[in-house]
């Protein structure tokens, strides 16, 4: 074995060693984060989390108001984002294919996908909170919807793209009109994939904190009134974690665990759907 070959083999061993080391290191750190979260979250876990409201410092309590508030905020946001996202995705893949408008929309949508979420909060503050004179659940949902729409648009477009043109052609040949082909053939065949997009969008907004800071705010009490401030898990976690009180910090960990489990469950669900879609 000559010197050059030996040097190349040594370089390869070193590089592979570093790559394996880096992967193990990162996996270990991420496992560390999850382990802490599970440990601290489960220590604070008790059934009353789901039945009692957030307490004043020093008293026992739960997260019922925050959980209900989060479900409301996310639910309303998805009710708005889903139709808009699906229709826009339909335009991109069905009507506007190849047009300059759809390339512009696609580009803008990709940028929106990655825009800092705090900007959505400021935007909604400017157009809803400030003019209407107060923080509200509606504003919080609007901010979340703005984050969810690009996710739905992107997945809908991708999934419609997987529908074979021969199916559309067959429907056209039977005399079906364009809108009829889209609603009865394309949607039906991409149904699972489009659902994946909705679940992904849910997972994306479930843990968003920054856009809610200046829109829905938080509320110590139980409320389902979307026109006032409303309790929600992410902002509760932020406030309680930053507080000096041990019980509040424990509740923050419990809330963080609930949110992470929800997001992971949604992500896994979307993967299962995706597998059946392809």
């Amino acid at each position: 074995m000559n010197a050059v070959v030996r040097r190349r083999i040594i370089a390869d061993r070193i590089a592979r060693g570093l790559i394996v080391f880096a992967t193990v290191l990162v996996v270990a750190i991420l496992a560390w984060i999850l382990a802490i979260l599970v440990y601290k979250g489960f220590s604070a876990f008790k059934p009353t989390l789901f039945t009692e409201n957030t307490p004043p410092p020093g008293e026992a309590g739960g997260l019922a108001n925050a959980i209900v508030g989060s479900l409301l905020l996310v639910g309303v946001a998805m009710l708005v984002a889903t139709p808009i996202g699906i229709l826009a995705g339909t335009y991109l893949n069905e009507y506007g294919r190849g047009s300059w408008l759809s390339s512009v929309v696609r580009f803008v949508n990709d940028v929106l996908l990655a825009k800092p979420s705090i900007l959505a909060g400021l935007f909604i503050y400017e157009i809803i909170v400030a003019p209407s004179g107060g923080f509200s659940g509606w504003a919080g949902s609007a901010a979340l919807a703005i984050i969810a729409i690009p996710v739905v648009v992107r997945t809908t477009e991708d999934m419609l793209d997987l529908v074979p043109s021969s199916m559309r052609e067959a429907a056209h040949a039977l005399g079906a009109s364009r809108a009829r082909v889209i609603t009865s053939v394309s949607y039906r065949s991409a149904r699972v994939g489009i659902t994946t997009g909705i679940i992904l969008a849910l997972a994306r907004i479930a843990g968003e904190t920054a856009p809610l800071l200046f829109t829905s705010l938080n509320n110590q009490f139980f409320s389902t009134d979307m026109s006032g401030t409303i309790a929600n898990l992410p902002v509760m976690i932020f406030q309680f974690a930053m507080s000096p009180y041990d019980d509040w910090q424990a509740l923050a960990w419990a809330g963080a665990l609930i949110i992470t489990l929800a997001v992971l469950a949604l992500s896994i669900l979307s993967r299962i759907f995706q597998r059946t879609a392809k």
């Binding site: 335009y91 803008v108 935007f123 648009v153």
Partner: peptide
């Protein structure tokens, strides 16, 4: 038909709405 037109119009409106969001960010900020 009317459904054709309404559906195509809705899709176009939703696509333009995506542009409007980005424009809205910039203008309102």
């Amino acid at each position: 038909s009317a459904f054709e037109r309404a559906f195509a119009g809705l899709c176009l409106a939703a696509a333009l709405f995506v542009l409007l969001i980005l424009g809205g960010f910039f203008v309102s900020l």
